[in-house]
Design a protein around this nucleic acid. Structure first.
Lengths: 348, 348
DNA sequence: AGATCCTATGCATGCGCTTGCAAGTACTGT
DNA sequence: ACAGTACTTGCAAGCGCATGCATAGGATCT
């Protein structure tokens, strides 16, 4: 048999006040005498009473209420990647700092997002942040209809009226390529992502674009799926051909590390003597001494802060037009790139 | 002005039944005619109705009810570590698979756990999983009083009546040390964790214990705080002395990689020629070609599965005595350890 | 002292749903 | 045909809290 838990009525009785007084004691701006509040809080403490957040949002469900559930839905994917894992941690802290709780849902593919959102909406979330994946046009409309603000993090969908916060992937791709071209590489390879991934594709687009403008021909393209092992395999393929690239741009750091490990430890190549390597994201492992991977850094903290702020703003003003924030990436030059045009000696 | 959302009453009207019928249509085992259910579901679909999980758990709050909030609180720390990040991902999937939602709370220190739990309890979570951190005796009692099952993951507290699921850290430490001793190392160093961390301490205890039994003297101890950079610094210290260790056991993989990078890339040492290296956990990066780090592997998947199962069992039978599952670690021998007793040549 | 105003409090209602109970319906067997 | 049974269904009572409204005290002013 289940025990009844302590309710505001119990506290009311103990403090000799009405239940409403208890409720008011726990609402910051309610009209209640200081002495009464203290007495109530005292009694509450003694009984171990904690307001029931569920019931609270239940009664606040009335039309026009301010207080809501305090729940933020977060949909997440690609958890394996340290870059994203770190982001959930940061996001979690930001969300908590705003007094919200984070309802986390993990999905494996873009197609699961809609149903995940549906599930989360049953919990009447006050808003949602969707990390590294996208939602359908239809679901975006549903969210708008139900007045649930949504922010896409690290992704965006062309023509979809949804807030988004992401790095300028194309610009980052250009930046990376510029660095490689300027330092005199002329056999530049790219390890891109699957065509379905807009983020990775944009980085590659920036790469191709810059190459075209600079009049440098693309040496070769390989493809990976965002994992270390796919990067490793791409690396093995890249350097098994008769002529090898003298620079490799990978659209993600983990893949770049895959290439690095394959080249250096399986094929005996040297970086940057044999080829320059550039990644994207700046994960912690990029700066480990043995990696020293040059990369395009994302202003992650700031992006997370902004994502949360946009969510808050949007909750205040439900009709505000969607914001699409873009951030410039920064080139972090480490030892995986050769610094200037080297003499013939470097060529193999 | 906020729109009223669609409720079971709207569906009831549309389907020409009572509100209770709608409720029953959405409850798997309720007494309702098949035809009626279909009609209701049809109408619900048309109106875009989704049961309100908050209201649902609200009314199920009555004494003895089966259905609860469907919320599982997860308290998490040390998110930076890839090993733990991975675990949240897996856990998230397991929890979802059981039809629960995961309410994630991130803490930075053990001391925040109690208040985190308090916050989560306001949401009337059905249970909690606490990852890599601990709770106070008092809070454990509170949870029991409120009948909220708790499982400690990867931690346990001596003498505390709380379910726990963790690797046999001491045994793992022994296993690691045995490997090093058997292969003829005699200047064995350890990079331990801070004394407050029971998990890391247990690994070290196993290490010291075995050394003692084997009659091998501890060469030197360094300390880290579970991060790559603390491992790196420990590594620099270890090899800056006049006499260097010929083996290093690190109580976590990230720290071991810190040592590896420092030794190999900053000090120019070779592994395993100059010294053998052993970690603990088997994170993905451990098997990267350039690392090939020997380590003690944890049966993570199984541990997560069991943690969830224990939670479920405990929810069914609230008075069952706490279970404390222990798992044996497996020694994964990679190239960072020399395989047999080598001739004098190895010594420096 | 009386009128006026403001603050503090209690009462009562409802948020959307589940569920015990009673009533209704259909079906079975004799 | 009628009692007995098994299913369905609607009614209504909460779940724990927030809040509009009315009211009771004070405090302030004239």
């Amino acid at each position: 048999m289940r025990k009844r838990s302590i309710t505001s009525y119990d506290v009311a009785k103990a403090a000799g006040v009405s239940q409403s007084a208890v409720s008011r004691a726990f609402s910051p701006n309610a009209s209640i005498a200081k002495a009464t509040r203290e007495r109530v809080l005292e009694a509450a403490k003694e009984l171990g009473y904690q307001p029931n957040a569920i019931a609270r949002s239940m009664s606040s469900a009335r039309i026009g209420a301010q207080q809501k559930t305090g729940l933020i839905g977060v949909i997440f994917t690609r958890f394996e990647d340290p870059f994203f894992a770190r982001m959930v941690a940061d996001l979690s802290r930001s969300v908590q700092a705003c007094g919200w709780q984070m309802l986390l849902f993990t999905v494996d593919t873009h197609s699961e997002v809609d149903s995940a959102l549906n599930t989360l909406m049953q919990y009447k979330i006050d808003g949602a942040i969707i990390m590294s994946t996208i939602l359908s046009d239809q679901m975006a409309q549903t969210c708008r209809a139900r007045e649930i603000p949504v922010v896409l993090f690290n992704q965006s969908v062309e023509g979809l009226d949804v807030n988004s916060v992401q790095i300028d992937n194309r610009g980052g791709g250009r930046l990376a390529t510029e660095c490689l071209v300027e330092t005199g590489h002329d056999r530049i390879a790219v390890v891109g992502g699957e065509t379905g991934d807009a983020t990775l594709m944009a980085r590659e687009t920036g790469f191709v674009e810059y190459l075209l403008e600079a009049g440098v021909e693309l040496f070769i393209r390989e493809e990976g799926n965002f994992t270390f092992s796919s990067g490793r395999e791409a690396g093995l393929r890249l350097f098994s051909r008769r002529e090898s690239p003298d620079a490799v741009f990978c659209v993600s750091d983990v893949m770049a590390l895959g290439v690095l490990h394959a080249a250096r430890f399986e094929l005996g190549l040297q970086v940057p003597q044999d080829f320059s390597l550039l990644g994207f994201e700046d994960i912690p492992a990029a700066e480990w001494p043995g990696h020293s991977l040059s990369t395009i850094r994302q202003p992650t903290r700031r992006m997370i802060r902004d994502a949360v702020n946009i969510l808050v703003d949007n909750m205040q003003d439900l009709d505000s037009s969607p914001r699409r924030e873009r951030y410039k990436g920064t080139l972090i030059l480490r030892e995986s790139c050769r610094k200037r045009n080297l003499p013939e000696a470097t060529q193999r």
